[in-house]
Each structure stands twice: as C-alpha cells, then as structure tokens.
Design a protein around this nucleic acid. Structure first.
Lengths: 247, 247
DNA sequence: CGCGCGTTTGAGTCGAATCAACTCGAGTGG
DNA sequence: CCACTCGAGTTGATTCGACTCAAACGCGCG
C-alpha cells in the first residue's frame, strides 16, 4: 500500500489514469492547475468502510483505482447495493452535508478527494466541471434504471447472467474484443453479488453452479470466470439481443 | 382539452405553476425571456403515448400538469416502470438523440417543450439552467436508489405501503399537514402500480385489500384512499421511522 | 340490456428464501 | 509438518410468498 500511496500522492493530474473519464475530463490545463491545488489522495484497504450513511461528508472524490460499493441497509438488516463505483466514478453530492449511503471499499481502493467547499466554489467558477458532472450523473441515472428492471422483473438466473455480462463487457472494452472468449476475476463475494442483485447468497451460488453445469461459464477457482461464448451468456440475460443502441 | 390548451399556450413563464421548481427555477427575468422564445406547449390525453423508446427525440420538456411514466419493456412483455414524472419533472437528455424509455401520459398531461438544439445552446450559455438540471438529476438518482431498495428487498405489502406513503407525502406537502388523516386519489391503475413495484396486478389488489381489511387504509371507490394514521402506514413500509433526514 | 374494462378473489404452482450441513482452501501456531 | 480454525462457498431439504390461471364482480356506456 505505501508504495502505491507514495506514487499516487505525487501524481500530476496530467498523468492520472482517469484523467479523460473522471469529473475533470473536460478541464483544460489551467483548470487542472486549480484542481491540483485542492486535491489529495486517500487509500483504503479491501473491506474497509469509506463512509457511513448519515456521517458528515467533508469531501467529494473520484475513484482512481479499485472498486467501491454504495449500499442501503434497512433496520432489520436487509441490504441492497445501489451503486458500484469503478475507476473514474464520482462519490458525493455537491450541496449535501451528509452521506446518503454506506460506501465501502471492496478491493484496495485509491480515491482522489476534494474538500467539499473548495470544490463547490471551483465548480461554480468552471462550467467544464459542472457539465461533466451532469453528464456522469445522467449516465448513472440510466444505469440505475437498467438496474431497476433487473431487480423488479428478472429471474435469479437472468440476474446472475446480467451481472456477469456487465463485468465481461467492461473487461472486453479494456482488452481487445477477442471473439475467443472473455475471462475476468469477480470483484465481489457471493454475498456482495446477492446484495447487488436482490437475492440471497445461496441463490447466487446455485445459479452460478447451474450456469457452470450447462457450460455457459467455466470457473477457475471460485473467483476467476471464463466465458467461452459471450453471445451464449447474453441469451441468458433476458435482454434485447442487440444491446439497445442508445445515443 | 382545447380550453386548457389555449390558456396554457398563452402562459407567460412568470405565471407558470412550475416556475419555481422546474428546470427554469433559477433563471432570472432575462433568461426567462430567452426560454419564452423557444418554448411551446403540448397536451396529451390520459393513456396516450408521449414517445416510444428508440424514437428520435427532437425535444426536451417539463411536465406542467398531469402525470407521466417512464417504462422499460422486455421482449417477452415483462414491464418495469423506471420513473414517475410529476409536475416540474424534466423529460429527455440533452446530448442524446433518441428516447431511452417509453413515456406515457397516465392522466391528461401538459408539457412545456423546448426543441433540443436551441435548448442545448441556451444551456451552454446560461449556467443557471445547467445547475438546476444537475440538481434535479441528482434528486432523481436518489429517488431511483430508494426505489432499488424497494424493488430488491421489500415484501409485497411493504411495497404497496411505500407507494401509498410516497403519494400521501406528496399530497400532504400540498395541503396543510393536518394530523387528522390524509386522503388522495390514486393516479395509477392496479396494473401501473404493479409495473411500478415489480409485482403482478393480482398481488397489488390482494395487498390493498389486506391493508383495507386491517384498517390501515380506507377506500372510497376503487381509486380514492383515506389514510387515518400516516404513522400506522409508515410502520408498514419497512423504512426507518424517521424519514432519514438527508441534506 | 349486454358489453368491456378494471378490479377482486380463489385454487394451485413454482421459484427463491430459509435453515442446516458440509466442502474447500488459506492461515495459524503448536 | 500437521492439526486446527475460520471464512467463503456449495449443496440439500423444506417452507413460504408471490405468480399463474381462472372465475366472477361492478360499473360505465352505447
């Protein structure tokens, strides 16, 4: 951790891995300079809480590396994940004093933080930041609505296939889109997948076993997944065959 | 329809019922002038489609009066409502060419429309509009996440109680917060409620009957609901007793 | 009157939750 | 080195809540 930490603390925005996708994506050199002066990095170990719902939130932040989750919990302990934060995703709401959800690091995590007040001031001064934040928020809203369809109407098997497809697609966009099968590590435990999908962990386990038994996926250990045919997997998601061409 | 239409077509922004809550809320007199020149009203009768998912969308709009829904449909016909649009809510996404969801008028509906291109230009020129749109989008995202908890983790009874509580709360904020019981008309059919809640219409009907049988609600006809004790209703939603104080 | 639509109610089924036992692998310490 | 523990995951038996299929109701309307 300290290695990474040191390296990242020195990082100039211009060399940042999420430079072109995060809330700062549209900023020009001058604006980056401004951001540079108010930013600071924080690291979290896998499993650590970043903030609890209701806590005072004195910063907003971008995920630089790693994965975090947003979850809501009911009094009796029922839990629902309401957001999955990947590198470049933004946490926190300008203009709100307290966190609305629990934020947890599910892998080792590095965040690029801005104290709320200076960030808000900067946002009011530089439309590029506000524009980008609006765009990102609209994307998140679309993702949330897709997710609502999954939670409300999909079967357990379709939910699992959809989750695998989302992760596979994300990795496929990084690696070459080789038709010869996608492979990736699950960034979530069975229980976290259950919280994501509105299922129990037992049902998650059963459905994964079922997809494995039928050859839709191959497992190497518990976490590493191989998808021989992405088309075959997509058939199981219940979605439109063609990924629904927006924009 | 033509009566209403005529009246509204003449409406100056300054006298608009949603003036202080819609996307134009922060605009000053000059900015309103600008908006005035590019806006136009459209009316839809209850049950009519406003736009279909995938259609080219040449405008964005605010709901002035009435209620509209956003829904997603799977190939096999399963439907999930992903948004409920009340007066002042905004429809459409700047920068996107086609609609992502089906939009339907569930009651008679009047919308204040802006052709997309002029609106985008105006938005880039006037930060007040972009600021307000960001704020509204963040609110919608919060609502969507609340809804995800409902869809993923709540029982049928809790879902119905939550929906009634949402409508009751909205009406309570309009009328005086009289402790002596809230009353309102359901703006949705049983089937639309089912699409909202991720249930079947039969289950919706059964749960409403059950709440009625136990005196949590009283029905006058099929659509008019009386809630003798809002606290009693809130107990059935599964939510935290104190509505979770955000902001 | 009869038709259609939204709604209610009933009987039976099924999918996912629950409760419980067991496996597997990594880490610990005697 | 091996026994032990512990957490993550798997699998089985059973239960239960919501879905499905089906029938009937009530109300407005031509």
């Amino acid at each position: 951790m300290s290695h990474l930490d040191l390296k990242l603390t020195d990082l100039k925005c211009g060399a940042c891995p999420i430079r072109h996708r995060a809330v700062c994506a549209r900023c020009d050199a001058d604006e980056l300079q401004e951001l540079e002066t108010i930013k600071y990095y924080r690291s979290f170990e896998a499993g650590q809480p970043v903030i609890w719902s209701g806590d005072r939130m004195e910063f907003v932040a971008s995920v630089v590396t790693g994965i975090a989750t947003l979850t809501q919990t009911m009094e009796d302990g029922r839990r629902q994940m309401v957001g999955l934060l990947l590198p470049s995703d933004f946490v926190g709401r300008p203009g709100r004093a307290t966190a609305a959800y629990d934020v947890t690091a599910t892998t080792d995590l590095v965040m690029c933080c801005f104290r709320k007040k200076p960030f808000e001031d900067l946002m009011n001064a530089t439309p590029h930041i506000a524009q980008r934040l609006l765009e990102m928020t609209l994307d998140e809203l679309d993702a949330a609505r897709e997710w609502m369809l999954l939670l409300g109407r999909k079967t357990a098997r379709e939910k699992i296939a959809s989750l695998l497809a989302i992760i596979a697609r994300r990795n496929a966009s990084l690696k070459a889109a080789s038709s010869g099968g996608v492979r990736f590590d699950l960034p979530l435990t069975r229980e976290e997948m259950a919280d994501y999908l509105g299922l129990t962990l037992e049902t998650v386990s059963r459905q994964i076993s079922s997809l494995k038994r039928e050859g839709v996926i191959v497992l190497e250990g518990k976490r590493h997944v191989i998808v021989p045919s992405l088309d075959r997997l997509l058939e199981e998601t219940g979605d439109d065959s063609d990924g629904g061409m927006l924009n």
